[in-house]
């Protein structure tokens, strides 16, 4: 077995894993654990659930990696597994069914889409308290998004996948991704503004 180069590509690591390298497996976990963990945390809102999602994702990935034909990027494939793990966890918890977010709900009585006060994010580290407060508001708002909107929002906005990648990860249509993202963004804008003005 050849040893792994200092900066292996995902393709190198997959090939090494297929030839039995445990080191390759460790490197794949190291490369993607933060992203998958973050995704689990944003989806479920609890550290323990995020850890369960990450575990399930990597366990399933390594169970099936031998058959992975690299028709998609490894990262996208891992997120496909993670998204399914989130959906399974939600089913197990017997959560309420998702409610739809309608566009009309954002149109106010005066016919406008409302007035919003959205704070700025400061890149200055000395604004730690303000940043922590804003982060709390954003995280709470994400948790109030209905599950199917949260999935799209987290993949597009937090993980930075484009529309096409998100359709592949969630196996839904382009139109569904666009519609859910737009409504999730309007919902987030309303929640952020409401929380910020109340605070």
């Amino acid at each position: 077995m050849t040893s792994i180069t200092s900066n292996p590509t995902d393709h190198d690591l997959i090939a090494e894993f297929k030839s039995g390298s445990m080191e390759a497996m460790e490197k794949i976990v190291g490369r993607y654990e933060d992203r998958i963990f973050t995704f689990g945390l944003k989806m479920c809102g609890h550290l323990q659930d995020a850890e369960d999602i990450a575990q399930e994702t990597f366990l399933n990935a390594f169970r099936y990696l031998k058959d992975f034909r690299e028709e998609t990027k490894l990262k996208n494939w891992l997120f496909m597994i993670a998204a399914r793990a989130c959906m399974r966890k939600r089913r197990k918890k017997k959560c309420e069914p998702d409610h739809e977010i309608s566009l009309d709900s954002f149109i106010h009585e005066d016919g406008s889409d409302g007035k919003y006060e959205i704070p700025d994010w400061s890149d200055d580290p000395s604004d730690n308290v303000m940043r922590a407060e804003l982060k709390k508001i954003i995280d709470a708002a994400i948790q109030t998004l209905p599950h199917k909107y949260r999935l799209v929002f987290n993949l597009r906005e937090i993980e930075g996948f484009n529309t096409k990648e998100t359709t592949e990860i969630l196996e839904i249509s382009t139109q569904s991704v666009k519609t859910r993202l737009h409504r999730a963004r309007l919902f987030m804008r309303e929640e952020i503004s409401k929380q910020y003005m109340e605070g």
Binding site: V29, E33, D34, F37, T38, L41, K42, L47, E51, A54, Q55, F58, L59, Y116, I118, P119, D120, W121, R131, L134, K135, I137, I138, D139, I142, F153, E157, I158, R185, L186, M188, R189, I192, S193
Partner: peptide, 29 residues
Amino acid sequence: SLRKSIELSKKAGEEEITPDMRKHLRAAL
């Protein structure tokens, strides 16, 4: 306002995974 809230969500949405959390996940795996 929509553009601003998108930017804010992207910036404030980042998570920092602590070494302890990472260690715990590796051990569990």
